[in-house]
């Protein structure tokens, strides 16, 4: 009996597309190695073949047994996976995908500002590469970060889980420019709010506690160098903290 549903088909399509993508790109390093006749491609292509076989095997198994297919030793551990959740559905996935893409827009800011569509809106002589030593880069980075953050807030308004998934990546994407010391307090508060904390006094007490403990342990005690950023005044603030603590 055919017990396949749409998610089974999407799953196998995902794996097969992945195999196709990596197989295609394996030709980029398909070169001979003098001492090893199999070259650099045998290993990855064998893995890709096994992935394709396993994906097809899974499809056939699901066709026969549906979601109860070949329960494993730890099948019980996964029984509640994705069952009681309110998330899911195409709109949710699309919304989450856009949210997850926002940090990558920031990480590729230079490339975006170099696009011919954007060029007419930029002042003459503007360096789209946004070099660290160009004083004009800082305000542009701050403006773009704010715009993207506002976009993040608007898009995540009705997608709580998507917001939680995207916030840490957004935080990581901004670290190079704005530094750990300036962003971490905002990040702590953001995570607390997303986890359901609404009491402002509690947040005002807990945030400095977490931040202070981290700095005391890693920066003061262990001398771990964390990113200080490169955009003023965040860079100045980060360096000031490091100087005070060390």
């Amino acid at each position: 009996m055919n017990r396949l549903n749409i998610s089974h088909k999407i799953e196998v399509a995902f794996w097969l597309l992945l195999v196709g993508f990596f197989f295609y790109h394996s030709f980029e390093f398909d070169r001979e190695i003098e001492i090893y006749k199999y070259g650099a491609t045998l290993w990855p292509r064998t893995i890709l073949l096994l992935i394709a076989l396993a994906a097809i095997g899974q499809l056939l198994d699901q066709r026969k047994n549906g979601d109860r297919s070949s329960s494993n030793t730890m099948a019980a551990a996964h029984e509640d996976s994705a069952q009681d959740s309110e998330i899911g559905g195409l709109p949710w996935y699309l919304n989450t995908f856009v949210l997850l893409a926002i940090p990558f827009f920031y990480m590729n800011l230079s490339a975006l500002l170099s696009l011919p569509v954007v060029q007419p809106f930029l002042p003459e002589g503007f360096n789209a590469a946004l070099p660290v030593d160009d004083p004009g880069s800082g305000p542009v980075k701050i403006t773009c970060a704010v715009v993207l953050f506002v976009a993040y807030l608007i898009i995540s308004w009705r997608n709580h889980v998507g917001a939680i998934l995207a916030l840490p990546i957004f935080f990581a994407a901004l670290l190079d420019d704005f530094g750990f010391y300036a962003l971490a307090p905002v990040f702590i508060i953001g995570v607390m709010i997303l986890m359901g904390e609404r009491r402002i006094t509690r947040m005002a007490m807990i945030m400095p506690l977490i931040f202070g403990l981290l700095l005391a342990f890693f920066v003061s005690l262990l001398y771990v160098g964390l990113p200080t950023g490169n955009v003023k005044p965040f860079y100045t603030f980060g360096n000031w903290i490091v100087t005070v603590l060390q």
């Binding site: 096994l50 992935i51 396993a54 297919s69 730890m74």
Partner: peptide, 17 residues
């Protein structure tokens, strides 16, 4: 480790990749 043998195998292959 995974829900089914196939998913276990695919997980390991993903790690290998």
């Amino acid at each position: 480790g995974a829900k089914t043998f196939w998913k276990g195998w695919l997980s390991i292959m993903a790690g290998l990749m």
